[in-house]
Each structure stands twice: as structure tokens, then as C-alpha cells.
Design a protein around this nucleic acid. Structure first.
Length: 574
RNA sequence: CGGGGCGUAGCGCAGCCUGGUAGCGCGCUUGCUUUGGGAGCAAGAUGUCGGGUGUUCAAAUCACCCCGCCCCGACCA
């Protein structure tokens, strides 16, 4: 492509409303434009990158046995009422009416439509398993769109849905997708980790988020520095500690101390001059209307998801003052396990503690020298706290560290949630009707492109890894008015074009500096600079965007060299 | 939904407090010079000052209402 003919409006100014680097660079590099909040247009350069991501996704999905379909974006309310989500999905679901006053929505996801499709056409176990996918525009009316195309309302997504006859098959389908996702993100040239995610009521560890590691990521992840264990903060497990006995010997007697207006851990710690590790936090939760006390060491935080899952509660929130008073007989801030009138569960961190400090269930009082067994009982111990850096890895001897990431993919075992609600059934070998088991697998296409930029940029602009680069090479004649220079540049350009290389010829009548800045900004991996001095010696220059390295080649060799580099970089990414 | 901020040329911004000819930088057009990291000089073009209502002799500027955008939080997965 000739630069002079491209629609590639680059900009020097950082747009005032663009917060993250990827958004700033995508706008400056002429990849995207914002139409309105959370809704973006892709310009030619940006769309080429999108198509690169899509192509990699397609190839790997096809390789994994999935088949591409294309489902409607406009979906009738009836389907959503059938699955129960018309009411549950909330405001993120954009609803509207047609001329006949029928209700519709814009698809934020396609479980309903795909399940409807499959239930009509699949009748027997002989037709299973199936995995269907599409690459399509989704609309989610996000409360607060942010970070450009990373968290927007209208966005391109690959979503795949698997249908299996039984659990074993569903597991196999999941594993295939898991493997395909690893291939996809590796081929995109991204540094990423699959992390275990909470799968809520569906159960099991059958949910993984694929996180691209980046400082600007919205999600925190916990990972092991030694093995490949990684999980999001809600999910990250903490192993039961080995030392669980506080040790023998007589313990000092229980003692009540007056602690006027001393409520928080920090206040108690300062007032009684004890470390937070010695204090036990007692939190009263409202689990489906029932109060439950959760004990945890003072320096830790309760993970509500873990509590909710452990209790099997549908709704869990911190209890209000009334419930706290009923349970403890004291206002907020003085709850403790001794004599509390509700069920008590405790985090593992309580094991091994002796002579603890707790609330006294009496206003303005705390207890000292509280000991498990002697002074209070616990119904169950469990992993109920939020992971912290430095915790032991639940899989190996390593240590947990934190990182930030951008969720670019999610694989999820759905079970029979939709197939049951929407009666997607088949006849098995014995002629019995059974419910299909589903999985769903999503990849944010635009988000993947943006995440790639978050990981690959410098002060001059984007640095595309070869697999996602909109063009592999830009040929830059330093001065187009020098006929020899322009002639050589054009010959190189023509030769690369003929060889099928994606190449730009920067034939603009601009100063060299302008062309260099633009080439850097849009992040083309390889730049061939044709200048009169080198050309007089039969040479051209090859500049590598990623390393900044400059090499000289004979004009006759440059195309072959460039093709070799491109091939090598695409190959290592596979 | 709560709190805060912003809206002036394509982009980035000043002007508003204290009402009186709409500005600056970049970009754009033309000419000359220049030509290896966002050139110089000269001459130009470009605005419903987000919209509406009000106050006033006079509103970008003051008041009220509306709209849009951004940030923080809440919510959501």
C-alpha cells in the first residue's frame, strides 16, 4: 500500500479523554475513533489488526474442531424469558421494541440463541459432541465504559459453545478449548497466564480466565513463582497450615478489658499494644437471612466469595446493626466468638493461635487470652480469606506473588444451566431423553489487540509483534525527490509485494523525521530506509522496531532477509 | 445511582472570576527555502463558544434547565 493513498490519520497530541496507553496510542496511530461513550470505529489500520487476531482465533478454533456460525445480534425477548435472564440480566442488556411493539435486545452474549439453534437440530447422541463458534459484535450497556476498546459497550467477541452428551465429554471439550486458547494467545505474541476463576454456583474448578499481564490491567491475579498455579484473587486458594496446634501448657486465664470506643483492628492493636496477628476479627454475615460469624486473623481480609461458597448461600452480605446486636448483644465493633449466639466458622488462620484478643460481645469491651476449645467452639475451619503476597502456593512449595492482568479470554463450563432451562435434550443410546451439557468460551477481539499494545510500546509508539502487525514492513525513501532513491525504494516495495509481504511504501513528500516518527508510532516491526548515501554504495538500512537495531544490507539482499525475519517471527509465535 | 470535573477551530488548550471586536500552539491551504528523527519564513482558510431559556443596551463570560463526555465510588461478571 502506498502511504500517500492510505487513510491513516496519525496525531501528535494525546487525546485528553484517553487514560490508558493503548487507548492513547490507538487513537494517535489512527487505528480507532470514538463515536460516543464506549462505542468505537475502527479505521483501516486498526481493522487490519482486528482481522489478524480474528484469523488466528479462527485457525485455532477450526483446528480444535469447532465450526464457525454467525448468529443474530438482535434477539427476541421470548428466548431470554425462557432462560430467565430477561429479568436477571439487568441494565447491561439493551432492550428495545420493534414496530409491532415486540420486545428485543441486542445480544450481550449468545447462549440463548445457540441453545435454541441446537435444540432444534440436534436430536440424538450420534450428533454430539458439537462446538459452534462465531466472531461477532456484542453489546453490553456497561455502567462505566473505560479504557477505550478494552472496556466498551459495543465490541467484537469470539464466542464458542460446546454441547456434549455427558460429563466426560464436556470435560474433554473444555480441555480442547483450554489448549486452543493457549495456542491463540501464544501465537498473538502475548505474555499471558490462564488463571483459575470462581465459577460460582456451577461448581468445580472449571473456569479459567486468560489474563494478559500488564500493569494497567483491571484485575489482580495471584500466581506462584515456582509452578504454573495462578488464580484471580477471589478464587486463589490458601492451603490449610501445617502447624495447627497452639502448643501445650497452661494458658493464662480469660480476661475482659475495657476498651472504650475501640473498634477496629488498628485501634485494638494500638490500645492493647498487641500485634494484629494476635487479634481475631469476628464478622457477622447475613447469609440468606441467617446470621453467621466468621473468624479471621486480624491482619487478614475475609473473601466473601469463599464464605458464600462454603455456606452454599445464595445471598451473602455483611449483617446490619440490628442483626449484629441480636447475634452478639453488642453494637458493631465488639463481636467475638465467646458466647456468640450464631453459628461460627473460622478461617484456617485461626488455627495455631493461642491467647487471642477478641471482641467481648459487650459494648466497649474486648477479651484477652482467648483460647480455642477452652473458651469457644468453631463449627468448621475452612479457607475463607483473601490471598496475600507471600502466602504459600496451594500446589507446591513456592510463594504467591501478585500481578495485574487484562482478561482477554474466559473458558467456562456451563453444565446444564441453559440446556435445562431451554430444554436442549437428546436421546441417548437407550432411547432415554437427556439434557446436553454445555460449555462457553469467549475471547475479546478488540481487547486482545489493546492488551497487546499495553504489553508492547515505548515512548515512540506501538511495537507490534509480527503476528498482529497491520503491516510487516514499511519502506521509507528518505527523500522522494531523489529519483535514484525513489526508484530503489519502489523496486524493493514491488518485490516484497510480489512475494506476498504486507508492506507500506512511504511515498509521502515529507521530511525523513516525520516518516520515521509515523512509522514508529504505528509500530511496523521492520523498516527499510532508502537513503542516497547508503544507496551510492548499493546498500539500504533495516531498522528493527522492537530493538532499535540498525543493519545495512545490499539492496539485492534486503527482500530475502526481510522475508526470512518475518517467517522466523511468525514461526516462533506458532 | 452518588460525588467531582469538563464542553471554545480537526487536535491540545487560553479567555469566563471582573459582561463590550473570539485567541494561542499543532494541524490544514498557497508560495519560497530546506531535506536522515515531528523544518524555517511569508500569506491564508476554518467557530451555531454543546443546546435552550432568562437577566442585560450588550452574554463564550452571569442565572436556570437540558444534553454530551471524562474521572472517583457504588453496581455488575
Amino acid at each position: 500500500m502506498l502511504y500517500s493513498e492510505m487513510h491513516l490519520p496519525t496525531g501528535r497530541e494525546v487525546p485528553s479523554d484517553a487514560e490508558v496507553v493503548s487507548n492513547q496510542l490507538m487513537i494517535r496511530a489512527g487505528m480507532i475513533r470514538k463515536l460516543t461513550s464506549g462505542i468505537y470505529s475502527y479505521l483501516p489500520l486498526g481493522y487490519r489488526v482486528i482481522r489478524k487476531v480474528e484469523q488466528i482465533v479462527r485457525e485455532e478454533m477450526n483446528k480444535a474442531g469447532a465450526q464457525e456460525v454467525h448468529l443474530p445480534m438482535v434477539q427476541p425477548a421470548e428466548l431470554w424469558q425462557e432462560s430467565g435472564r430477561w429479568n436477571y440480566y439487568g441494565k447491561e442488556l439493551l432492550r428495545f421494541r420493534d414496530r409491532n411493539d415486540r420486545d428485543y435486545c441486542l445480544g450481550p452474549t449468545h447462549e440463548e440463541v445457540i441453545t435454541d439453534l441446537v435444540r432444534h437440530d440436534i436430536k440424538t447422541y450420534r450428533q454430539l459432541p458439537k462446538n459452534l463458534y462465531q466472531i461477532q459484535t456484542k453489546f453490553r450497556d456497561e455502567v462505566r465504559p473505560r479504557f477505550g476498546v478494552m472496556r466498551c459497550r459495543e465490541f467484537g467477541m469470539k464466542d464458542a459453545y460446546s454441547f456434549d452428551a455427558d460429563e466426560a465429554g464436556a470435560e474433554k471439550s473444555y480441555e480442547k478449548m483450554f489448549a486452543a486458547y493457549n495456542n491463540i494467545f501464544r501465537r498473538c505474541g502475548l505474555k499471558f497466564r490462564p488463571v483459575e476463576a470462581d465459577s460460582g454456583s456451577i461448581g468445580g474448578s472449571f473456569s479459567h480466565e486468560f489474563m494478559v499481564l500488564a500493569e494497567s490491567g483491571e484485575d489482580a491475579i495471584a500466581f506462584c513463582e515456582k509452578c504454573d498455579y495462578a488464580a484471580n484473587l477471589e478464587k486463589a486458594e490458601i492451603a490449610r497450615p501445617e502447624k495447627t496446634e497452639p502448643g501445650d501448657g497452661d494458658r493464662p486465664a480469660l480476661e475482659s478489658v475495657e476498651t472504650p470506643n475501640v473498634r477496629t483492628i488498628d485501634e485494638v492493636s494500638a490500645f492493647l499494644n498487641v500485634s494484629p496477628q494476635q487479634i481475631v476479627k469476628t464478622l457477622i454475615f447475613n447469609a440468606d437471612g441467617r446470621a453467621c460469624a466468621v473468624l479471621i486473623r486480624g491482619d487478614h481480609e475475609v473473601n466473601e466469595i469463599k464464605v458464600k461458597n462454603f455456606l452454599g448461600a445464595a445471598e451473602l452480605e455483611l449483617a446490619d446493626d440490628e442483626m449484629i446486636f441480636k447475634a452478639t448483644g453488642a453494637p458493631r465493633g465488639f463481636a467475638g466468638p465467646v458466647g456468640v449466639k450464631v453459628r461460627v466458622i473460622a478461617d484456617y488462620s485461626i488455627l495455631g493461635l493461642a491467647d487471642m484478643v477478641t471482641g467481648a460481645n459487650r459494648e466497649n469491651h474486648h477479651l484477652k487470652n482467648v483460647n480455642l476449645g477452652r473458651d469457644f467452639a468453631v463449627e468448621a475451619f475452612a479457607d475463607l480469606r483473601v490471598v496475600q503476597p507471600g502466602d504459600a502456593c496451594p500446589r507446591c512449595a513456592g510463594e504467591i506473588k501478585f500481578a495485574r492482568g487484562i482478561e482477554v479470554g474466559h473458558v467456562f463450563k456451563l453444565g446444564t444451566k441453559y440446556s435445562k432451562a431451554m430444554k436442549a435434550v437428546y436421546l441417548d443410546r437407550d432411547g432415554r431423553e437427556k439434557t446436553m451439557i454445555m460449555g462457553c468460551y469467549g475471547i475479546g477481539i478488540g481487547r486482545t489487540a489493546a492488551a497487546c499494545i499495553e504489553q508492547n510500546f515505548d515512548q515512540n509508539g506501538i511495537i507490534w509483534p509480527m503476528p498482529l502487525a497491520p503491516y510487516a514492513v514499511i519502506v521509507t525513501p528518505v527523500n522522494i525527490n531523489e529519483t535514484e532513491v525513489m526508484k530503489a525504494a519502489r523496486e524493493i516495495y514491488d518485490e516484497l509485494l510480489a512475494a506476498g509481504v504486507e508492506v507500506i511504501l512511504d511515498d509521502r513528500d515529507e521530511r525523513a523525521g516525520v516518516k520515521f516518527k509515523d512509522a514508529d508510532l504505528i509500530g511496523i516491526p521492520l523498516r527499510i530506509v532508502v537513503g542516497s548515501k547508503n544507496l551510492a554504495q548499493g546498500r539500504v538500512e533495516l531498522k528493527i522496531r522492537k530493538t532499535g537495531e540498525n543493519r545495512l544490507y545490499a539492496t539485492s539482499d534486503i527482500c530475502e532477509e526481510v522475508r526470512a525475519i518475518i517467517a522466523a517471527e511468525l514461526k516462533t509465535a506458532v
